[in-house]
Design a protein around this nucleic acid. Structure first.
Ligand SMILES: [Mn+2]
Ligand SMILES: [Mn+2]
Ligand SMILES: [Zn+2]
Ligand SMILES: [Zn+2]
Lengths: 138, 138
DNA sequence: CCCCATTAGAGAATGATTCTCTTTTGATAT
DNA sequence: ATATCAAAAGAGAATCATTCTCTAATGGGG
């Protein structure tokens, strides 16, 4: 089972391993979709038909607290989630809610070098992401 | 009165000039804050104590439709608004809701050149913004 | 000044998220 | 293995930003 990695992440972060947490983290890591809470609940209910939204939200908050996952910025008031992996950017569909990862090592290098040289006055950078809006052709 | 520019924008976009619309657009263009609907209502009520939220939301939607303003991406489920001006990026405070504009012509050029050369497969770029998360020192 | 489409106003409805309280559970120590 | 207890899940209400529906007002062309 692919639970292995998930369980490892939970224990490393001093989070009790529970079936619900394993399920939530599996969903987020499995989907490349940046799922909403509703998406996550839909998936989990395939196995746990009665998981309440409140439980999922609490689990998500715990993961965010530990920085196992992050929230994805959106502009429609619905929160989306992303497992933390190697640095990447996001492609946003103009006319749907589709959001996909965009990995580009050259771009990462470019930005890293840029901000190494050029400091922003009165601001300490922790992280940055490019949000690219447009249309998917597929 | 600084209404002049606001009225010009409204008429250019075939939007009837009403006091409420003038007020909303003045607030968004005046504040560098990327205000939420609530922020906007708070300001407008200084002059129009009874403007309903529904009216403000409808005005905001009309402006977005005409691309006079844009929504700002956030990760807490509260929508923020930004008047459309020359291309810029955003600085997000890690521990508060502060969001500020970041103008950097060199960065704009850098990204423009990068994407001129490197196309993203199966995706047509319409716009992009760098979201920079960190701490303000002031 | 009239007319009418457009806009504002009022207020209910929706729906995502949070909160509060109770019950269950998982890990640890006996 | 069993008892213990803090942590987590479950249940359901509450919150609150946003949307919707309906009615009244209004601005701008004729
Ligand atoms: Mn669903
Ligand atoms: Mn307020
Ligand atoms: Zn991502
Ligand atoms: Zn801005």
């Amino acid at each position: 089972m692919a639970d292995k990695e998930v369980i490892k992440i939970l224990t490393e972060n001093n989070l009790k391993v529970t079936p619900q947490r394993v399920a939530v983290l599996e969903v987020i890591m499995g989907l490349e979709n940046h799922p909403s809470a509703e998406n996550i609940v839909d998936y989990i209910r395939l196995n746990f038909p009665h998981v309440p939204f409140g439980t999922v939200y609490k689990i998500l908050d715990a993961f965010i607290e530990k920085e196992i996952i992050q929230r994805v910025k959106t502009e429609n008031g619905i929160i989306r989630y992303d497992s933390v992996k190697k640095p990447h950017h996001h492609l946003y569909c103009e006319d749907s809610e589709r959001i996909e990862d965009f990995y580009d090592e050259d771009l990462n290098k470019l930005l890293e070098n840029y901000f190494k040289k050029k400091k922003i006055p009165n601001f300490t950078i922790k992280d940055y992401k490019l949000q690219i809006v447009g249309k998917f052709k597929v």
